[in-house]
Nucleic acid binder design. Structure first.
Lengths: 262, 262
DNA sequence: CGTCCATTTGATTAAGCTCAATGGACGTGG
DNA sequence: CCACGTCCATTGAGCTTAATCAAATGGACG
């Protein structure tokens, strides 16, 4: 909750101390940005916008006009099969960038909706051109973050393809936890999923019923403890069960272009 | 087979007609490149290298020093679970770029090996810096191709998460077919998998035995016909069964920076 | 002609799905 | 305050898909 910043501070332009943008915050988590780079990005970023729960950010087939940085809430991307089954492809938590993928297509390859009420910062697609032209380091950073997302997706692919329900769910919980920590900084904070069991099933390729049984099983085994919405995890054991690796630590910036005027 | 180019032609430098590089060929499939852009890229590209079947391109945990463009053969990226099970994350066919993901990490997140004898063109990682600095349009293109790969991975995630063996396999066959066509150009050419059933199982999250039964079933139903290694597909029916979409058609280049001196 | 490897087939088992019912939490309207 | 509806979690019973275990078949090749 303390993550929600006062919106009026965004959009000041001049000195670095005053630049307070979602994108700058996200990007500089991985590599330091020069003042002019930070200024360029924060200038491009539009006013944060509030979305209602279940509001569609971009439907499959529409054109995605901007990236969105998640400031608060949860969103996800999914596809529906002919028989009505649903696969959720990617979850977005505070700090994540929505649309790094679909922005390169003329039509979105999947639908994106908010799972909860959410605050998103749009970043216009056509302004990316300026980023690639004037701030190659930032471009490299955006590229790297896109690839980081891909690694996370592939970890989940492995879990769905080759693990049983118990390990899949453990893997999922740890992934959400590590993702929350990027934004939240407090490593002791309990996990707050804010997703119902049907949604989790659609992420993991399981039915809601089986997700429920598996949660119960993990609870019986003392691996998780649930207290109204929040969850405490036995991280060490779960990590072992799910063979989980946290991918959010570090990217290799050695090949990045240097900031133009540092 | 006709895809294998005479290697001596690569590396000439001067005029456009003589530039004959794997990377240039791949990238200009999606957007026209200026002469200087083409020159920059082809100059960076090193001599094609031949790999033996089962030769490791980059092991999990090592640093990946270059991208590789596949000229001939098949390769794949995989992860092994503690109990020995294997999940193949991505297959690479001629025209694909290996390493767009792992290049942004200090250590590879997965192992990559050749499934057959293969010819690959390395493209040094640290030279990417120059590309991002001097050829922003090419950088955008590389970004877009990385995202295209991600969409393909997510289509497979959907298949593995929410489809049965029959549809999964159909989906897989169509994906390989459409991928082959990027490199091969002949739309009537029969599908040449050159992968055994165990490998296919590890792609699709199925056992080798079940892959076999499913192949047999597709064959009985007249949806595929197998003649020593090659395969003819009833594309229309299979596309319907697998709800398949070909993602290789088109990316949105409208936001790309323009070539610097066209 | 025997070895190696991949494919094929059969019999049995188990993980997860489907269908169905119950109960708690919460909001809304009378 | 109570009645009611909705959403979600929970639990049970039976069924289906794919896994497992095991073995046979069939090239390709030295």
């Amino acid at each position: 909750m303390s993550q929600v910043q006062t919106k009026s501070r965004i959009r000041e332009s001049a000195s670095r101390a005053e630049i307070h943008s979602c994108v700058v915050e996200k990007l500089s988590h991985y590599a330091p940005l020069s003042d002019s780079e930070a200024r360029l990005i924060s200038r491009l970023e539009e006013r944060p916008r509030t979305f209602k729960a279940n509001e569609v950010i971009c439907g499959s087939g529409e054109e995605l006009g901007s990236l969105f940085i998640v400031r608060e809430g949860r969103a996800y991307t999914y596809q529906i099969l002919g028989d009505g089954r649903r696969q959720i492809l990617q979850l977005y938590y505070p700090g994540d960038i929505i649309g790094t993928r679909d922005i390169v297509f003329e039509q979105c390859t999947a639908s994106t909706v908010c799972a909860t009420e959410a605050v998103l910062c749009p970043f216009d697609k056509k302004d990316l051109k300026e980023v690639f032209e004037k701030a190659p380091k930032v471009a490299a950073l955006i590229y790297a973050i896109g690839m980081l997302e891909q690694v996370v997706v592939l970890d989940r692919l492995k879990a769905i393809g080759r693990m049983q329900a118990r390990e899949r769910l453990a893997h999922f919980l740890l992934e959400v936890l590590s993702r929350s920590r990027v934004a939240c900084h407090d490593p002791a904070a309990p996990l707050e999923l804010r997703l119902n069991q049907e949604t989790i099933g659609d992420v993991l390729g399981l039915t809601q019923v089986h997700v429920n049984r598996t949660f119960k099983q993990l609870e019986r085994d003392g691996l998780i403890k649930r207290v109204n919405g929040k969850m405490e995890l036995q991280e060490a054991e779960l990590t072992h069960i799910a063979e989980f690796t946290d991918r959010y630590h570090r990217i290799d910036t050695s090949w990045f272009p240097v900031s133009r005027e540092d």
